[in-house]
């Protein structure tokens, strides 16, 4: 089976074959928008994922078809988390965690020492980078890190300037492999593919 989705067209074909309920729409999901922008965010088939900011689970539901590993979906608001739990009862590999993403002690307890291959963060708040820095303490050294950045929630200046300021802060702890603007799908959003810097 075709598992390594590197281009948008491949992803489209894979989804068309396995489609049951819904299409994966790039206008509602940032992961799909990154695929459309030719970033290297494809899945091989056995990754386990830590997903911060899962909301009601539109993206999580789509990803669960593409891997056999567990997906840890973290969400803080009760109304959204109810829908996430409903989704998790239907599928086998979704783990709903009702907690604040800043509370890393609880996250460690809920993961039970599983090795995590991909960390995805999509929390539009002012301290987005700080949350990512704390959460990257849980994961492995070789873990891929995806960050979708909403510049409007950090400051109302020109969005390209704020992205530059944030890149300066990102470089201290992470190595930037790829980056892109998500323009036609999401306005004033950026997507980064990162890796942890191992300090000696």
């Amino acid at each position: 089976m075709m598992r390594n989705l590197t281009t948008a067209a491949e992803g489209e074909i894979f989804i068309m074959k396995n489609r049951k309920n819904q299409e994966w729409n790039p206008y509602t999901s940032k992961w799909k928008a990154a695929l459309e922008k030719n970033l290297n965010v494809g899945l091989k088939g056995d990754e386990s994922i830590l997903y911060l900011g899962a909301s009601s689970g539109t993206t999580v539901g789509q990803i669960s078809k593409l891997t056999r590993g567990l997906i840890f979906a973290v969400e803080n608001s009760p109304q959204m988390a109810i829908r996430l739990v409903k989704l998790a009862e239907k599928k086998e590999n979704i783990v709903p965690i009702f907690s604040d993403a800043r509370n890393t002690e609880y996250l460690k307890k809920a993961i039970f020492g599983k090795k995590i291959n991909i960390l995805f963060q999509d929390i539009p708040s002012a301290d987005q980078i700080k949350i990512l820095g704390n959460a990257s303490g849980i994961v492995d050294k070789e873990c891929k890190i995806f960050l979708s950045l909403k510049t409007q929630s950090i400051s109302q200046k020109d969005y390209k300037e704020t992205a530059k300021e944030i890149e300066k802060r990102l470089v201290e702890n992470f190595e930037i492999i790829q980056k892109s603007d998500l323009y036609p799908f999401h306005k004033k959003h950026f997507f980064y593919v990162l890796r942890k810097i191992i300090k000696k």
Partner: peptide, 10 residues
């Protein structure tokens, strides 16, 4: 793991 987390988050 799935079962424990569903119960706890409920």
């Amino acid at each position: 793991i799935v079962k424990w987390n569903i119960e706890q988050s409920k």
